[in-house]
Design a protein around this nucleic acid. Structure first.
Length: 424
RNA sequence: GUGGUCGUAGCUCAGCUGGUAGAGCAUCAGUUUGUGGUACUGAGGGUCGCGGGUUCGAGCCCCGUCGAUCACCCCA
């Protein structure tokens, strides 16, 4: 065991997995920018207060924050999510509305790590500030849906709910609280604690003991105002019009208290329930105001990179992109020719690799094979003298003996044109 | 934060009731003189997570600790 290792819940992403991560973000950027969203790069650190506006009742704020006091005496926190940062940025810069943005990056939450759940984890997401049009809710949900499709995922489920207007929600919470308190004996001890802090969250309980009680609990739909009901109906109609299947789940409350109206979650079809939330989002019309801005509508989502990749693994899609080079140079004359050749090839736009330390030809050929290159270029003393290169295909369908290897001798001066011809 | 399981070579693991560390894969090198992917031969590589304890002797037993993993909580 080495003296130093990554801290708990943090890890190194190595090749080839790292290439997959980068590609993941590229695909997301493509989807988002195709719909007119611009990227925001914001700091990893914010004033603690920015995140406290998310709500003291949320675990993300009350117990999972990575915070510290800096040398200037400021109370700083590593961002546990990005919606609050984006709202802070919106208030600070006052951009044109609707402000449609996307982001990607690492978030930090101090909790016990497990599969698909780390202290530093990556998300991609989009947010729109300054429009309360239900069509926008639909657009956003659809973009997430498109993104999963672009990755190749086919078993993602969309779960939808509405928490209504703040007043609706407040009345519902009251009713819920009264209901559970009236049946306190049947409630699990854990849920009783949850009830004290946040009655809505009791609906999330996975304990069998609570199942019956939760199932019979009052439904949020009974508390919708006319406007809230209309908004929710419009969202559902829009999704239907776009042929996006969804399930309305009245128990979907989600952990962040700023949500109102639409909330949604994408669930993986193959993952265990502990990690099946691939991404989620909703409308948070009050958050900008809570951060000192004017009342501003907001809606968005965040998708977890790890969990989505887990889902990809389970479905056997979105494999790491190939890191193979095009050609591999084998040089048995000391290595200087390989240096010159690879440099020349790279300038010409080819991906070229080579072996080092002047190993035996056999050893270099093995390396060539491992590199995934389609072609090996071999330079020995004969070729060096004659100004030629042996061009040997490595991936061609070779049946049998070496005489059929299909390798050819090409003059150095003709090498580039020969390669471009062969490789196309 | 609470509880269960686990921690042996780079990777996946074996190691019987405690007796001086093993396999496969991978790596490297050879299999006569310049050619990979198959085959054969050989080599390197481990303070058995770490620290204590019991014992003549511990990878194996006990305690602690760190880490991983799973569940709960919650979320992505």
């Amino acid at each position: 065991m080495p003296e130093f290792q990554t801290s708990p819940g943090m890890r190194d992403i190595l090749p080839p997995e790292s290439a997959r991560w980068r590609r993941f973000v590229e695909v997301f950027a493509q989807v988002a920018e195709s719909a007119g969203y611009g990227q925001v790069l914001s700091p990893l650190l914010e004033d603690l207060g920015v995140f406290q506006r998310i709500g003291d009742a949320t675990d993300v704020v009350s117990k999972e924050m990575y915070d510290f006091v800096d040398k200037g005496g400021r109370h700083i926190a590593l961002r546990p999510e990005l919606t609050a940062s984006i709202c802070r940025a919106f208030v600070q810069h006052n951009p044109q509305m609707p402000w449609k943005i996307w982001y990607s990056g690492s978030m930090f939450r101090y909790e016990k790590p497990q599969r698909g759940r780390y202290r530093q984890f990556d998300q991609v997401g989009i947010e729109v500030l300054g429009a309360d049009d239900p069509n926008l809710d639909v657009e956003i949900i659809a973009l997430g849906w498109e993104f999963y499709a672009a990755l190749g995922l086919q078993q993602v489920k969309l779960i939808l709910n509405s928490l209504g207007e703040p007043d609706d929600r407040a009345r519902y919470v009251q009713a819920l609280k009264a209901y559970f308190e009236a049946n306190l004996e049947e409630l699990s001890p854990e849920s009783r604690v949850t009830l004290e802090k946040n009655p809505l969250r009791v609906l999330d309980s996975k304990r069998p003991q609570d199942a019956a009680l939760v199932a019979a609990a009052p439904r949020i739909a009974e508390f919708y105002s006319e406007q809230a009901a209309a908004h929710f109906a419009a969202v559902q109609a829009g999704l239907t019009a776009l042929d996006i299947p969804f399930t309305v789940e009245p128990k979907l409350v989600r952990g962040l208290d700023y949500y109102r109206h639409t909330t949604f979650e994408y669930q993986g079809g193959t993952l265990d329930s502990a990690q099946n939330a691939l991404g989620g989002g909703g409308r948070y019309d009050g958050l900008v105001e809570a951060l000192g801005g004017k009342p501003t509508a907001g809606v968005g989502f965040a998708l977890g990179l790890d969990r989505t990749l887990l889902a990809c693994d389970d479905e056997g899609v979105f494999a790491p992109p190939s890191t193979a080079v095009d050609v591999f140079v084998v040089d048995t004359t000391g290595g200087a020719e390989a240096l010159a050749l690879t440099a020349q090839l790279r300038r010409a736009g080819l991906r070229a690799d080579r072996a080092y330390e002047n190993r035996s030809m056999k050893s270099q050929m093995k390396a060539a094979d491992r590199s995934g290159a389609a072609i090996a270029l071999i330079v020995g003393s004969n070729e060096l003298e004659a100004g030629t290169v042996v061009v040997r295909p490595l991936r061609a369908e070779q049946v049998g003996d070496d005489t059929q290897s299909g390798q050819s001798v090409v003059a150095r001066t003709d090498l580039l044109s020969h390669l471009t011809k062969v490789m196309s």
